[in-house]
Design a protein around this nucleic acid. Structure first.
Lengths: 106, 106
DNA sequence: TTAATGAGATACCAAATGGTATCATGTCAA
DNA sequence: TTGACATGATACCATTTGGTATCTCATTAA
């Protein structure tokens, strides 16, 4: 059906990829920088980045011989949209998110 | 690491399982009832239900020889908590969720 | 009691997944 | 120009995953 939703959920299903998302939330990073922080090869990290890119969660900017990986905020939209479908079920937690938004606006 | 988060995200990573969640959001169902709606065997559906149960997203109640599968609203909490960590990044969409919550309160 | 029904368990299979090793390509600097 | 560096691409491997077929068990109904 909707490949965006599937690719986004799939991208988030792996702990390494969620870690990468958190790291990129702190700052943009190259593959080499990311690889430093994991106990795996650059090729493995690259694969994860490809999945994250397919999921629309990151973008890559070529900068000379480096590639800057950065978080793509819009990418999470399909996930949140899907979750919002159930707001009447888990709106306790959605309320918490709402509070976070309120705090953020100040 | 937090196995709850991992199991919950993993449970949501499969389209069939997300469909099951949506169906159970409409009403509680047995395996047989769910299987009617999919083009796969009962054993396959059962496996998906096990993954959803491991993820804390559903609970099962024995009722005679039937097992009633129902959505567990609390189960989504780890997912929403993880996502809320990034509210400053994707708060556009969080705002939409906020609107959904507001609509729901009326 | 006996047969039918709803569900769990296991063995098996093909494909996807997460990883490595290795080689190729483009860019920066001496 | 030449070497070092950052990255991409591919082949390969073990494990996990999503599925079926089949068997067993428990409960309901005739």
């Amino acid at each position: 059906m909707d490949p965006k939703i599937q690719n986004a959920f799939r991208a988030l299903a792996d702990p390494t990829r969620r870690d990468i998302v958190q790291m990129l939330a702190a700052k943009d990073m190259t593959i080499a920088q990311l690889t430093e922080r994991f106990d795996m090869t650059r090729a493995a990290v690259k694969k994860h980045l490809t999945v994250l890119s397919d999921g629309g969660l990151i973008t890559v900017e070529a900068k000379g011989r480096e590639r800057i990986n950065r978080l793509e905020p819009k990418g999470i939209a399909p996930v949140l949209d899907w979750l919002s479908y159930f707001d009447r079920f888990w709106d306790d937690r959605l309320s918490n998110l709402q509070e976070a938004i309120e705090r953020n606006k100040k």
